[in-house]
Design a protein around this nucleic acid. Structure first.
Length: 488
RNA sequence: GCGGAAGUAGCUCAGUUGGCAGAGCAUCAGUUUCCCAAACUGAAGGCCGCGGGUUCGAGCCCCGUUUUCCGCUCCA
């Protein structure tokens, strides 16, 4: 990471805190690692991004509807999805090389060096201990077999520790009497499963026909091993996901469609295309047919903002097995090759999944600018401005009386009352006008109007544009329509 | 998780061999001001990250701890 870019990233983080966008969580108690809170302008910006996504998915697609599923889900959900088994692997660290291994991988690698009989004995012993979650036994097994770290060559191991992706919590106000595991529920590590388990409810009640999509935004929770990089990687974060259900055999076309459509959504915000790239996955999960990330060039380099995955019928099929309920769709459309309806099938799924917090960071990173303005006396000053797309800006219009006398505040207040119902307005009469403009620049307000003495004569105000600092005179009567048009 | 650096006002930082806690900006109350952060007056703002120790006396020295940053490690 270039120092300059890193400085820029630090400046963005400092700016986000200083101007009420993002605060470290529980800061008065020294913070909580990898958890952040959104402040007054941050929560507005985040909401605006969420709304923009939501509208583009639901309101603008007749075949996509939304759900708002609970964060708590039946624990079997996560067995079906694979999260319980795949993401709770015991780990062990070599104290000399600092290398961390999954215990099963470490032992399996050692088995390769043994004879078949010895290997099978060891694997059997390992499986037994893994099933019993006997971590002390696993460590002893590693030590007894003199398994060494391939880097340091030593057998100086830490204790075996559990790596848990999912947060657990206790469900029900009364403690379990016998087995405390009975009351365990997880905080969802992804919102997608809330869509899959509601597949039939939504399809039937909203009378959806394949192909159709279900969209959802909401919080998800993951225990990351290390958590850093500001809001890029958080333990509590918000996803915006859409699962698109399709007829098997059409997944290639739909994958291509959504891959392109999602990039176009990003570009619709006016962000330059060269800041984006696709990253096609080479190593695919066993159920995936195709997968790619949309990456954005953050100050910390190209990083994933959004994923598009062709998930086959894996999730719905898994839920069929675990729930013993049919999750199928009867397709009345005629298959031209047979002349008969396509009939019953488990739909395939194309998933688009974008991190709302990452999108927020993307907008902030793209918007943040320290503009150098040459002054008349030859010196230069710096203007810190957030060039947030107008439709996403927390405050759309600042209404500023040039002075706080001569009836100007009264006129400004009247304009405020006229506009605030339609978009977020901000009134301020303190300090010199230039200072107020710059404060608005710092939080990304795209438009400021100033009420001056001429306003009293001809009912016009100056509108000042954030990005260019240009001003023009417009009639008060045209103001509301002008701003509404610019924030569409 | 390991190693390094840092933590003083809201922000950026100064603080002398260990001797009264400081500046600029920001904030607040006024005055001034007809368009881009820089006018004037005043006020408020601090467990010097936290806990021990040394000392007559610690922001400063020692130990521990915590948070952040940087590098490594891990990451479906």
């Amino acid at each position: 990471m270039a120092t300059q870019d890193n400085n820029r990233f630090q400046a963005i983080i400092a700016h986000a805190k200083e101007y009420g966008f993002v605060f470290p969580s529980s800061e008065i108690y020294d913070g909580l690692s990898a958890v952040y809170d959104y402040g007054p302008w941050g929560s507005e910006l985040k909401k605006n991004i969420r709304d923009y996504w939501w509208k583009s998915m639901t309101q603008l697609h007749e075949n996509i509807v939304g759900v708002d599923a609970a964060i708590f889900m039946h624990p079997t959900t996560w067995k079906a999805s694979g999260h319980v088994d795949n993401f709770s692997d015991p780990m062990i660290d070599n104290k000399d090389s600092k290398k961390r291994y999954r215990v099963d991988h470490l032992i399996e690698a050692h088995v390769e060096t043994l004879s078949k009989e010895e290997g099978n004995v060891l694997i059997a012993a390992m499986d037994k201990l893994l099933a019993a979650e006997d971590f002390a036994g696993l460590k002893k097994l590693i030590e007894d077999n003199k398994i060494k770290c391939s880097i340091s060559g030593t057998a100086n191991w830490t204790d075996v520790r559990q790596f848990n992706l999912m947060f657990k919590t206790e469900f029900g106000a009364v403690a379990a009497e016998v087995n405390e595991d009975e009351n365990i529920v997880y905080l969802r590590p992804e919102t997608a499963q809330g869509i899959f388990v509601n597949f039939l409810n939504v399809q039937k009640t909203a009378r959806m026909k394949v192909p159709f999509g279900i969209a959802q935004t909401g919080k998800a929770f993951r225990n990351e091993i290390v958590a850093r990089q500001f809001i890029f990687r958080m333990r509590e974060f918000e996803q915006m996901e859409m699962q698109f259900f399709i007829r098997p055999g059409t997944e290639g076309d739909w994958y291509k469609y959504w891959k392109e459509a999602r990039l176009q959504w990003h570009l619709s915000l006016g962000i330059p295309a060269e800041k984006y790239r696709y990253h096609d996955h080479v190593k695919l999960a066993h159920y995936a047919k195709e997968a790619c990330d949309i990456e954005f060039e953050f100050p910390i380099g190209f990083k994933e903002v959004e994923g598009i995955h062709s998930r086959s019928d894996y999730d719905l099929s898994q839920h069929q097995v675990y729930s013993k309920k049919k999750l199928q769709y009867f397709d009345n459309d005629i298959d031209e090759t047979t002349g008969k309806p396509y009939g019953n099938y488990v739909p395939y799924v194309i998933e688009t999944s974008i991190g709302l917090d990452r999108m927020f960071l993307l907008i902030l990173s793209q918007a943040y600018d320290e503009e150098v303005i040459p002054r008349e006396d030859g010196a230069a000053e710096t203007r810190t401005v957030l060039r947030i797309p107008a439709k996403l800006a927390p405050i759309k219009l600042a209404i500023l009386p040039l002075t706080k006398k001569d009836g100007l505040p009264e006129i400004a207040r009247a304009i405020m009352n006229d506009c605030r119902e339609d978009f977020y307005c901000f009134y301020e009469e303190k300090d010199a006008i230039g200072k107020r403009y710059r404060r608005m620049d710092a939080i990304g307000t795209p438009f400021c109007i100033t009420v001056d003495h001429q306003t009293k004569e001809d009912q016009t105000v100056t509108i000042r544009y954030r990005d260019t600092m240009q001003q023009e005179r417009i009639a008060i009567s045209d103001l509301r329509a002008l701003v509404k048009e610019k924030i569409r």
